[in-house]
Design a protein around this nucleic acid. Structure first.
Lengths: 219, 219
DNA sequence: AAATATTTTTAGGCTTGTCTAAAAATATGT
DNA sequence: ACATATTTTTAGACAAGCCTAAAAATATTT
């Protein structure tokens, strides 16, 4: 239906839209896709011709409903494959993204449905991101950043704001995984660092850089 | 490493080689890949430049050792994915090929290894074809065509010579699956048809057209 | 408001993989 | 063996997706 490249453009524009930006500009797409602005302009025109984007010269782009559907479907496939790689093949959560970048372009609706069923209809991928439903609905998570959480509540580690392998590997190193429970015991205004209490009377410090990339929910 | 298209050319040349032909000619590749001879010539030159094929103008091509390795690895991935689709996702054996044609191009050695392990190191795909080992060795099956088998031996249905969906669906219809046991009770020279006895005192007729596409092994 | 800086688009070109039409080589038939 | 048929290759073109360099539009400074 749509090419590998077209799907990647749509997915990128979708993700930039999710990050708040109303209208997406050429350079930001180029940066994410590691390509040049001129190439982005070419593709934007093509996708606008196909009614997947609304585009006015020099004014940036926004997804149409059709474009959004294609993007969300690609995200759905990506996250389902990540679940497969993590749950079934025992890949680490720092390894799944790269392979899912390829698998997300496999074109078979029946395959996606059967994979979903095989995985027992997961709601979140290994990084805590929600998996869109077949008809394109994404359940908004009510997660907050650890650095914004209040002390003395029981918090459950539920996701990440930084999806890079290096950050995920750092969490591995300090044994922080999805489901880890903690209570903030101390917040230091000076450097934004946070001390928490974990189960079994263990405690741990998070620098601001780490705390601002950890998503938790209040238990 | 190699493009989707390059892998498909190498796989096609490999399969044509397996079917006996010493040197593979341009037109037969074009026919399998549903493309034109001119396109094949272009790609052949490219693959020969990359030392994946031995090629002399107007004399056809043969895989080099390197080319064979790439082709066999693609076949390995294809057949492993077919096992996954059939065993885990419960696709029919007539449905798996088409999807595996896409999945075989996913590029991750670790993924292939972990998939192999997840499937418990299968030796044959859902059509009875052998799965090459990681280092490129294929165990030759000692299967014979049903039409060449002798009467009064116990035969085990073990593979197919025709991999098309229509043939596989026909076998579904007559309930012939891998593992079905039978004994030939009658061979008709006139039309090549064969009568067999199945378990539970059931019997069945195979036309020559069907019998020549069923592979069995003697129990 | 003019000058400067930044962003975006256009113009033209490259590679991959495809095509058609014509030329060249090989194979076949008499 | 020579004419004809078939196969293969070459030549030139096209679409997708990318590039660089230059031009045009927009944004920012002063």
């Amino acid at each position: 239906m749509y090419s590998y490249t077209e799907e990647n453009y749509l997915k990128t524009i979708y993700k930039l839209s999710e990050q708040g930006n109303e209208s997406i500009n050429t350079n930001s797409i180029a940066e994410v896709l590691q390509t040049k602005a001129a190439s982005v302009t070419d593709m934007i025109k093509k996708l606008a011709d196909k009614k997947l984007l609304n585009y006015e010269k020099y004014k940036g782009v926004a997804l149409t409903e059709r474009g959004r559907k294609v993007a969300v479907d690609t995200v759905r496939k990506h996250r389902l494959w990540e679940c497969f790689l993590y749950d079934k093949l025992k890949f680490g959560w720092d390894e799944v993204h790269e392979i899912a970048e390829q698998l997300e372009h496999i074109n078979s609706e029946l395959l996606t449905d059967k994979l979903d069923e095989f995985l027992d209809f997961p709601t979140h991928d290994p990084h805590g991101d929600p998996i869109p439903s077949k008809n394109g609905v994404i359940k908004k998570s009510n997660f907050i950043l650890l650095c914004d959480a209040k002390p003395n509540q029981t918090l459950v580690m539920s996701g990440v704001a930084d999806h890079t392998a290096v950050f995920l590997q750092h969490l591995n190193k300090i044994s922080v995984v999805l489901g880890t429970e903690m209570q903030i015991t101390e917040k230091n205004d000076y450097d934004g660092s946070i001390a928490v209490k974990l189960s079994g009377n263990k405690s741990m410090y998070f620098s601001k850089d780490v705390a601002k990339n950890i998503l938790v929910k209040v238990k």
